[in-house]
Computed example of a mutant assay.
Amino acid sequence: MLSRVADALYWMNRYVERAENYARFLDVNFNLSLEMPPGGTEQWKPVIVTTGDYNLYESTHDNVDKTSVIHFLGFDENNPNSIYNSICNARENARAIRPDITREVWEQINSLYYHVREGVNKKQWEKHDPRNYFLEVKKSCQLLYGIFDSTISRTEGYHFGKIGQLIERADKTSRVLDVKYHMLLPSVEEVGSPLDLVQWASLLKSVSAYDMYRKKRGKLSPLFISEFLIFDKEFPRSMMNCLEEAEESLQAITGSSQGYANMAEKRLGRLKSNLEYADIEEVFNVGLHEYLDNFQLELNEVSNAIYLTFFSWDNFSNQTQTTNQ
């Protein structure tokens, strides 16, 4: 497979996953703001921190308020990671490889593009209640996942797309967990309070984990919720599950089943092993923030290794020269 095509499939799915996650965060946080007790402070800054875009937001905005955050993360054409730009970038990647995807995938991503463009034109962020807009973004992204899974042959292209989706998903799950633990509560005294429990419930809802967590654990507990989102091998948005499925797709591409054949497999395998041989008590002893921060750094290394192994022209040139010698 051409590295150009593989790169486009990887980033097409990664951008779609990013857009869906942003829609989740905004929808859930809007609901949370409605559930705040009288006089409570709405928590919009953590949403921006979750996405990793706070420095950019701070450079262009004086205050953190609901309307500004919704516009910045959902519609801002100057924010490269906004829902609007993520879908535009996903569509551009899809357009560049139109012969390599199915008509159904192209039609759905095109439909999603026109939906978000209409949202910008109609200034949906100024609406009193924009939740229906974000619900449609989530549903459209999820429909695209289903179409991709049911119409794309399980070739290298399919697996590159899945790897992009899963790496983005693992990153966002780690970020939303990290931000809740450190930023949402105004004081240590409120740990375990009704407000604390409402926020933990909203965290689970932001990654569509509430029902599955309650079925498995029942009681809301920071320790159990953290364990579920980091280590659970059955929940599709847990960090562990994302890495396991990404490794399976990577091995399907390279044909290896033991050890590693390249730096991408080495980095991903090592990160997955770090999770496999850890437990939640160890994580809390180290510090949840420190553990998740290190996870995000190592996940970035995995992403860089995938680029250098499969997409970099320099790497391809070096491999060609080695073959010709």
Rank of each mutant, 00 (worst) to 15 (best):
224 F>L: 12
106 W>R: 06
190 E>Q: 15
143 L>E: 06
133 Y>G: 04
199 Q>N: 11
123 K>W: 00
91 R>H: 15
300 N>R: 12
3 S>E: 06
155 T>E: 12
105 V>I: 15
7 D>N: 15
297 L>K: 11
27 D>R: 04
198 V>N: 14
234 E>G: 13
193 S>D: 06
169 R>Y: 01
77 E>F: 06
261 A>H: 05
50 T>W: 08
222 P>S: 08
198 V>R: 14
288 L>C: 01
147 I>W: 10
236 P>L: 00
253 I>S: 03
322 T>N: 11
313 W>K: 09
127 K>Q: 04
321 Q>R: 13
292 L>Y: 06
304 N>W: 00
248 E>L: 10
251 Q>M: 11
260 Y>V: 05
200 W>K: 09
278 A>F: 01
14 R>P: 03
22 Y>W: 03
43 Q>N: 10
168 E>G: 03
42 E>W: 01
2 L>I: 08
19 A>Q: 02
128 H>I: 08
316 F>S: 10
232 D>K: 06
42 E>A: 14
94 A>F: 04
318 N>W: 05
35 E>L: 13
324 N>G: 02
248 E>T: 08
185 L>Y: 04
253 I>G: 05
284 F>G: 01
312 S>V: 00
249 S>Y: 00
34 L>G: 09
156 E>Q: 15
211 D>C: 02
104 E>Q: 15
157 G>N: 15
180 K>R: 14
62 D>Q: 14
68 S>A: 14
27 D>S: 04
103 R>T: 14
163 I>R: 00
63 N>A: 12
288 L>E: 05
93 N>Y: 10
87 I>T: 09
241 N>I: 02
307 Y>F: 12
25 F>W: 08
258 Q>R: 14
280 I>Q: 08
14 R>N: 01
178 D>M: 03
131 R>N: 07
79 N>R: 09
101 I>V: 14
74 G>T: 11
103 R>V: 12
147 I>S: 11
309 T>W: 00
247 E>G: 05
76 D>K: 10
57 Y>K: 12
115 H>C: 07
80 P>A: 09
174 S>C: 13
48 I>W: 07
32 L>V: 07
32 L>C: 05
132 N>P: 02
245 E>N: 13
107 E>Q: 12
191 V>N: 11
295 F>Q: 01
13 N>G: 01
229 L>S: 04
289 H>E: 03
247 E>D: 14
178 D>S: 03
69 V>I: 10
227 E>K: 14
205 K>D: 13
33 S>T: 11
39 G>R: 07
1 M>N: 12
18 R>Q: 02
71 H>E: 11
54 Y>F: 15
182 H>D: 13
262 N>R: 11
183 M>K: 15
287 G>W: 01
125 W>I: 03
161 G>S: 01
139 K>T: 14
250 L>M: 14
215 K>F: 10
12 M>E: 07
292 L>A: 04
83 I>R: 10
223 L>N: 07
310 F>L: 00
270 R>P: 00
102 T>F: 02
51 T>W: 02
22 Y>I: 13
21 N>F: 04
80 P>V: 09
192 G>V: 05
38 P>I: 01
304 N>M: 01
21 N>M: 02
115 H>E: 12
231 F>S: 07
245 E>L: 06
320 T>E: 08
56 L>P: 09
121 N>M: 07
124 Q>A: 06
281 E>A: 08
297 L>G: 01
205 K>Y: 05
255 G>Y: 05
190 E>P: 03
27 D>E: 12
215 K>I: 08
60 T>L: 11
